[in-house]
Amino acid sequence: MMGTIAFENVSKTFSGRTEVRALEGISLTINECEFVALLGPSGCGKSTLLNLLAGFEKTSEGVLLFDGKTVTRPGPDRGVVFQEAALFPWLNVWQNVVFGPQVQGIARAEYESRARELLKLVGLEAFAEALPVQLSGGMRQRVGIARVLAMSPRALLMDEPFGALDAQTRLSMQQLLLDVWQALGTTVLFVTHDIDEAILLSDRICVMSARPGRIVRTIPIALPRPRSIASLTSAEFVAYKAAIMSDMKVTHAPQT
């Protein structure tokens, strides 16, 4: 299994009536099976960075490599989990999960058992026939995760996937993601503005600042694995949080 990511001095400018420099000189290397969180305020370009890697947007300058190859377009090797799940509302849960393997022309026999396992993994085997609109936000996001895993991607790109959920649901989703990642060990790039979430999940936090978006600090998180939401109250966790908070205050003081 691979899944190495390399941004080499990448910049992104959105042209238009007024040019917007969204990202400036991003250099970031993510190793196989590493869990990296991008932390920053809204408008700091963290979603743009993820969109570049997903292949939804093109880099303006610099080199962006996934497993040594230049990223040119979206593909099933980089599974994206969107904030609002972005499920197809006219397909039921099962049809949403097998959409990827289906459109790639994979034989039914090959994907069926895996898809069923994944539904079980995210706790939705009883809801295979339900339409997305019949599910709660948390359940919808579970489907969003299952459908991405159904393609066996080498990296998971998650764009504030739990940002729209209530606090309790978010905790259960974080636990689910920790468990899934523990079991599958894919590379994860996780965009969030939630400090707790970043510390709890990741091996490394890249703190970003806005206008232009750049990575201002990289903080390795050495909390022991496997982690669970119980780690949220550990002394080490609180120490990390205190350090990051004071750090971000300094970084963003001029903006607030």
Binding site: A54, F88, G100
Partner: peptide, 10 residues
């Protein structure tokens, strides 16, 4: 995002 999701899934 529906279009992007479909592209992402190949």
């Amino acid at each position: 995002n529906l279009i992007r999701a479909a592209m992402m899934m190949g």
